[in-house]
Amino acid sequence: MQLFPCPFCGPRDETEFHYGGDAGNARPDGADVPIDRWADYLYLRTNPKGTAREIWVHMNCGEFFVMERDTVTHKVLSSAALGGEHVA
């Protein structure tokens, strides 16, 4: 079991959370977006070894947040609500 820090609730069991994808992977906007940009958005992931910034949602309270964690050690480095005004 691992504890994740929800910016609103504090530490909770990892099973209460759902992964939402890489942070900063914004959906392309507009009608003339090139196909390789769509492919990048949909399929290509950075998959870093080390620090990763990811979107997560705490299913019980509905808080969406950015969590920074180390993919090697599983240590959580920070978590902040989307918008950045609330930090756990």
Partner: peptide, 21 residues
């Protein structure tokens, strides 16, 4: 029912208990 520490304060009373919300 839960892995949450009942002595540690948590802002929300919504949690997983017995595997359900």
């Amino acid at each position: 029912g839960t892995t949450l520490d009942p002595s540690q304060a948590s802002a929300s009373a919504a949690l997983s208990f017995a595997g359900i919300s």
